[in-house]
Design a protein around this nucleic acid. Sequence first.
DNA 1: TCCATATTTCGAGATTTTTCGATATTTAGG
DNA 2: CCTAAATATCGAAAAATCTCGAAATATGGA
Lengths: 103, 103
Amino acid sequence: MDMERSIAALNNPIRRKILEWLKDRANFPPALPEHADLEGVCVGYIQEKAQLSQSTVSNYMGLLKQAGFVTAERHGQWTFYRRNEDNIRAFVAAMRTELQHLP
Amino acid sequence: MDMERSIAALNNPIRRKILEWLKDRANFPPALPEHADLEGVCVGYIQEKAQLSQSTVSNYMGLLKQAGFVTAERHGQWTFYRRNEDNIRAFVAAMRTELQHLP
DNA sequence: TCCATATTTCGAGATTTTTCGATATTTAGG
DNA sequence: CCTAAATATCGAAAAATCTCGAAATATGGA
C-alpha cells in the first residue's frame, strides 16, 4: 500500500471520475457481443467519456493501475480495466487509520 | 467539502505527517506556562519537527487550514493550529462514499 | 504478409507545485 | 515609540505534473 502513489493518483478529478464510472458497466456503451462475458471496460470507452486524448487516458489508467485501484486484462487488441475493490477498500481503511484520531 | 482542495492538501507526505503529529500534543515540546491551557501547537514547534523553512511550514499550515483539516487561533504573537476532527471525519467519510462501491 | 484497430510509450511545451529567502505584518514589552 | 519575536506573504527558481500528438507495439483478420 503506497499511500504516496495512491493519493497522487487520486489528485485529479477525472481520474477520480473514472473510478466512479467503473463502479457500473452501464456507465459505458454496451460491450461488443464477443466481450459480453468480460468484466471491465476498454480504454476507448473510457476515453469517450473522459473527453481527453487517447494517450492521456492511457496514462491515467496506468497511474490508477500502479496505485492498485484498477487491474488491466488484455483480450485481443483491447485492454479491459476494472476496479480492484479489495485494494480500494484497503486504501480507504488506511486513510481512515492515518487521518482519523481513533481512541 | 472541497475534495479537490482536500486531496491536494494531503498529496504531500510532510503535510500528512503534521496532521498525524497533531493528534497528540506530546509529539511537540511542552507548551510555555502561559500557554498551558491552550489547545493546539504553534508554528515554530511544527517547523522544528518538519525540518523545513519557516515560510514553507506556514504555507503548509495555510493549505491544511483551507482544506479544513486544521483551525488556527491567534494568541499574542503565536498562531496555534489544531486538528478539526469533525472535518477530518467528514472527509474520510466522503472519500469512502466516493471511492468504495457501496451496495 | 499486409493492413486496420486498440493501446502504450515517447518527447515536449504548458502549467502547477514546491520550497526558499526576503520582506511585511502583528503583537508584547521596555 | 522602538525593538524583538512569531508568523504570514511575496517573488522566484527548480521540480513535478498535465496533456498532447507522433511514433511504436500488439493483435486479429483479409
